[in-house]
Simulated assay, not measured.
Amino acid sequence: MYRIGLSVVALAAMTFAAQAQTIQVNKDNRTIAITTTDEAQAIADRAIVSIGFTVYGPDQDSTYGEASKVSNAVVKALKDAGVKAEGIESREQNLTAIDDNDKVRYSKGIRFVAAQSWGVTVPAKDAAETLHLAITAGANNSGGIDWQLVDDQALESEAATKALVHAQQIAEGMAKGLKVTLGPLVYASNQTPSNAQPRQFDRLNAFAKISDARERFQPLAISPAKISRSATVYAVFSLQ
């Protein structure tokens, strides 16, 4: 996408503003102003895996005891696999009485529910194995994955560079059509749109306890998402 502005002025002096900078346009300063948008893509190299569990029980103590057991088993499984402690971030934990209107569970003698969740940061290539380890350790409410880039700024810079090259190509075509020579770049600005929401792998919900699943099942086939960043460049070139 691009917009083109052509200034070839042989009258009185004029000025125009481009964001915070003012460019003088007069009979000695002919310019072409172009706005272009371009995009760059890269495969995610970091993942934040959403891990969590929910357990139910007939009373507060037994429900909390089961939650403590699952909580520590999940974290131990992650650490034993090499996940760094600073990469395991607690998000939420609670123990509450169930609603009296939950007739199905109430009729089964269930009175309390406990839940806990974490965000686990790992290299993208380890996301599937991390999810597998957590689920097989008892994390029965897991699965969301935020795909990210370690160096997001580099991708934004690549998009801006592509947009600027595109702008110059358009300017060269315009100059050729006008039978003039394109001069150097005299001004450029970059506006990077706010980042889109990270790509996610849907959360899994499996409230049945998984036993011996680590040995019986293979990790899910999960591939890192492709991350896109775009940049809009406003460029002004002189004409000779």
Rank of each mutant, 00 (worst) to 15 (best):
R203M: 10
L133Q: 12
R3S: 14
A33I: 11
G87T: 03
L6Y: 09
A154F: 04
A196D: 14
L155H: 01
D202L: 11
L11Q: 14
G65Y: 04
I51K: 08
I23E: 14
K76H: 03
I98R: 04
Q191H: 09
A208K: 09
I170L: 13
K84P: 00
A137T: 04
K103A: 11
S223R: 07
M1H: 11
V55P: 14
L155Y: 04
V25D: 13
T35V: 15
L133A: 09
K108Y: 12
D100F: 07
G119L: 06
P184H: 05
G119M: 11
L204R: 10
A81T: 02
T22G: 12
D80E: 05
S194M: 07
Q93K: 01
I222S: 03
A85W: 01
Q168F: 03
I88Q: 01
T37Q: 15
V120K: 14
E129W: 10
F207K: 07
Q41K: 13
S62R: 08
A12K: 14
V55T: 13
S7G: 10
K79V: 04
D102N: 15
L220Q: 08
D100N: 08
G183K: 06
V180D: 01
L220F: 10
E156P: 00
A40Y: 14
L182G: 10
L182T: 09
R91P: 00
T37N: 12
I227P: 04
A85G: 00
Q19K: 15
V233A: 00
I110E: 01
P224A: 04
A20K: 15
N72M: 03
K79S: 05
T54V: 14
A159R: 01
I98G: 06
Q153K: 02
S189K: 07
K125G: 06
A42Q: 15
K226R: 06
R105Q: 09
F112I: 05
S223C: 00
E129V: 10
T96R: 08
I51T: 04
D38W: 08
Q148E: 13
G119C: 08
D61I: 05
G183E: 07
L6R: 13
V113C: 09
R46L: 15
R216G: 01
T192R: 10
I43V: 15
L133P: 04
K179Y: 05
L6W: 08
K209W: 03
N190L: 01
T63A: 01
A159G: 06
F16G: 13
A81N: 06
R216L: 12
A154S: 10
Q218D: 11
V122W: 13
V150D: 07
Q148W: 02
A42H: 08
N101I: 03
M1N: 09
L133N: 11
V75L: 04
T22V: 15
K103I: 13
A188L: 00
G173T: 05
S230H: 00
A206M: 10
A33K: 13
V9E: 15
A114T: 09
I210Y: 07
S50V: 08
M174F: 10
K84D: 12
S90R: 06
M14N: 14
I227G: 01
A225W: 01
K103P: 00
E39M: 14
A225K: 00
K69L: 05
G109I: 09
Q200T: 14
K162C: 02
V233Y: 04
N190W: 02
G143Q: 02
E92C: 00
A213N: 05
A134H: 07
I23L: 15
V120L: 10
